[in-house]
Computed example of a mutant assay.
Amino acid sequence: MNLCFKVVIPARYASTRLPGKPLLAIAGKAMIAHVCERAQEAGAEEIVVATDDQRIFQAVYDLGINVVMTRPDHQSGTERIAEVAQQCGWAGDEIIVNLQGDEPLIPPSMIREVAVALAGQKLAGIATLAAKISHAEEIFNPNAVKVVLNKAGYALYFSRAPIPWERETFTQTGGKPSEGRQYLRHIGLYAYTVDFLNRYCSWEPSPLESIESLEQLRILWHGEAIIVNVVEKTPEAGVDTQQDLMRVEQALLLKC
């Protein structure tokens, strides 16, 4: 499929556990450089790193990667991406993939797949991914966000709680799901149109997103559709801790 899409990579210096995370070295190069390589491998026509920190701006610029300085008062990466689209003068129908700067192991196929999911959409201005949950304990893990879809593949709701709740089965089995029941874990990779981003930035935060601490619930609250493609498996986790850094480095070295 001949698809044109851009990738914006929000990169912040502040991190409670790993300050300066995007610039940390993994297998001989900065983490942000690995993430940009995944975007290139996915076939993005343009890649932009978005930051509000001069240290990251300079380091990324020195790597020869396109970087944009954004305002420091954004409440989310989505708002930061909207500012990038405005600064770059991108057209309203352009597709932008939001790729987090701490995901050096993200499969390039997933970056492209979320863009493909949005291409040609009439109803949704945003697309995301999900994968089947294979371990029952993950259903009850609040760090694993679950999503329920309608028959057309659009999101009905996202939650940290087990959804759908099997009233009879969970009561009788103490939390074991029915045989063959499919639960979906949300994968936090998004594609948007520029027009959608402009609408999003005009909305107030919703009560639901505050309760669940899930930004995507603002979209459903305001009546917009989210198309969800189901992929084979959840990608490797990103980097949040020093242990994650070591795990990712080993994985990348094995690929070399």
Rank of each mutant, 00 (worst) to 15 (best):
P104N: 08
P164H: 11
M31G: 07
G77Y: 01
Q172L: 12
Q121D: 10
E215T: 12
Y190W: 11
L23I: 02
C201A: 11
D93F: 03
Q216D: 09
A127T: 05
Q172R: 14
A152Y: 12
F170Q: 03
A85N: 02
D53P: 02
V49I: 15
R71Y: 05
Q40N: 09
N150L: 11
Q182F: 09
M246C: 12
V68T: 08
V49C: 13
P19G: 12
L99M: 09
R185H: 10
E166W: 10
D93A: 10
A30R: 03
Q86I: 06
D52P: 01
N143P: 05
V230A: 07
A117R: 04
F140C: 08
N143C: 13
W221A: 07
G120L: 07
Q87W: 12
R247F: 13
K6E: 10
N198E: 08
E249P: 07
I211Q: 12
V97R: 00
E236G: 12
L156Q: 13
A191S: 14
A130G: 07
R71T: 09
I95K: 09
F57E: 09
Q216M: 10
N141P: 10
A115P: 02
E137V: 04
T193D: 03
P104H: 08
A14I: 07
A30N: 03
I226C: 02
T241P: 06
V145E: 01
S210N: 11
P108C: 08
G89Y: 09
W90E: 03
A91Y: 00
A115Q: 03
